Structures are given as structure tokens and as C-alpha cells.
Simulated assay, not measured.
Amino acid sequence: MEAVKLVEFDLKQALTRLMRHLFGEDLEIRWVDCYFPFTHPSFEMEVRFQGDWLEVLGCGVMEQELVCSAGAGNKMGWAFGLGLERLAMVLFGIPDIRLFWSEDERFLKQFRLSDIYQPVTFQPLSKYPPLFNDISFWLPAEGYTENDFYDLVRNIGGDLVEKVTLVDEFTHPKTHNQTTLGSNFTVGRVCQALQTHYLFLPSSIHKHFHKPQNDPRDFP
């Protein structure tokens, strides 16, 4: 057990030095206990990024059975795996990991440099702020679950929809079986200017929900 603690100490010291070499001595770091199948104990390293904790790597002391199978049974070791995209997010100030799969030339050209040591800070692509949309609708009489709505918003809005929040629920006092939900969702533009049809996302969602047979407004 003492040997494992020494290896764990060496692991954390080495990876802490690596991260602070990349991002500066003032970088805030914390270790989170976790599970990986080939290491024990296992940890995730998180760094402070834009006010939140961001996971950047996983690591741990290697299971001795693996070390023995490699012909080094008289030794101990540790392993780690880096999330290169997350390191780049911290290094260049990139706010959204989805940008790494973008083909938007405005994003790509920011990182075509003749000198690899030239400092780069990501420049936001869109002039448009996020859109905040409110929507309410009567639920179908049966066969509806809360995830149906969330899935529908994602299917229509795709990666543009950043957050969906249920803000209100109302059941008609006279019928007791007709309910309306009020929700808010945030639409953000990551790679290109807002396309017009996303401005009509609420009406597209409405078309997917059937109006109850008896409209509650018909009741006195």
C-alpha cells in the first residue's frame, strides 16, 4: 500500500507540472476520484476554466496484473490519457468543444500559423447573441413523457439548442386531465450566422403536438 501511495504521489506531481508548464503556474487544479478498468486508484484531473471545472485527463496507478503480463512484475507504473481538445480549449480560450469538428473557415484559419509558438486567442465567430425562446402547449391526452419534448427540441434545433428548461405546468381546474407546459430554451449560434428557420423553432414544435379533442377554453 505504501508503494502505491508513492506511485500516486509521483503521478500527480508529474501531471501537475505538465499542466502548469502548459498553462502557467497560477492554474487551479483539482483531483477527482473515479473508476477506470485498468488502473487503481484512478483519478481525473480538472482545471479551472472560465469559472468552471473542466476535465482534461484521466490517470491512475496501473493494475499490477497488467504490469506482470508485460514482463515487468518487479516494477510499478502509472498511466494517463490526455483530452487534447480540452487542453486546446484552455490553451486558446475556445468556449465550445463542438468547434473542433467545424468546417467553418473562419475558425480554421485562426490556427494556420507560420510560427507554432505564436500566441493565439480564439476570436468568436458570430455577431449574434443567444436567442431565448418561450413556448407553451397543451399535452396530448396520453402517451406523452417529459423527454418527448426535450428530444423534439433537439431533433428540430440540433446543436443550436444549448439548454431547455421547464418553467411552468398548469392543469385545467375544470377538466383535471388537460395540462399545459411552459418551457424556455436557449438557441446559440456556434459556427455560422443564424439561419431563418431556427427563428421559427417554436412554431415547428407546436405542429408536433396534437390539440386535445376538447379545447379547455370552451369550458365556462
Rank of each mutant, 00 (worst) to 15 (best):
R48E: 03
W53E: 04
L181A: 02
V7I: 15
E146M: 14
P140C: 09
T171I: 13
V32N: 08
K174H: 10
R86A: 05
Y128A: 11
D96E: 13
E162S: 15
C191T: 15
L131S: 14
T16P: 02
A72F: 14
F92C: 11
T179Y: 05
D148K: 08
P220T: 03
E65M: 03
L194E: 03
H208G: 00
P212D: 05
P216W: 06
C34H: 02
F23K: 02
D134A: 08
V56P: 01
L15Q: 05
G24Q: 07
L113G: 01
F80P: 01
N177K: 14
T165N: 14
R98M: 06
D218K: 10
T179N: 07
T121W: 03
H176F: 08
Q213L: 13
L152D: 11
S203F: 01
T171V: 15
S42W: 02
T180W: 00
T180P: 00
V164W: 04
H210T: 14
G158I: 10
K109E: 14
L125C: 06
G83L: 06
F38E: 11
D52V: 05
D159W: 02
F43N: 01
T165E: 15
V190N: 09
E105R: 13
L152P: 03
T175W: 05
L18Q: 10
L181N: 02
V187P: 02
M76E: 04
E142R: 15
V187W: 01
P119L: 08
D218L: 12
N147G: 01
H176W: 06
G77A: 15
N74C: 03
K109F: 00
L82T: 07
C191H: 10
H40F: 06
E46C: 05
G60C: 03
K163C: 09
V47K: 01
A79R: 04
I156E: 07
H197I: 03
A193G: 09
K163S: 11
P173H: 09
G93F: 04
D151C: 13
K163T: 13
A193I: 03
L18G: 00
C59H: 01
F149P: 04
P140I: 08
D115H: 11
L108M: 12
T145I: 12
F185H: 04
Q195G: 02
E28C: 06
F170M: 07
Y144S: 06
S136A: 13
T16N: 07
P220G: 14
T196E: 14
E105P: 00
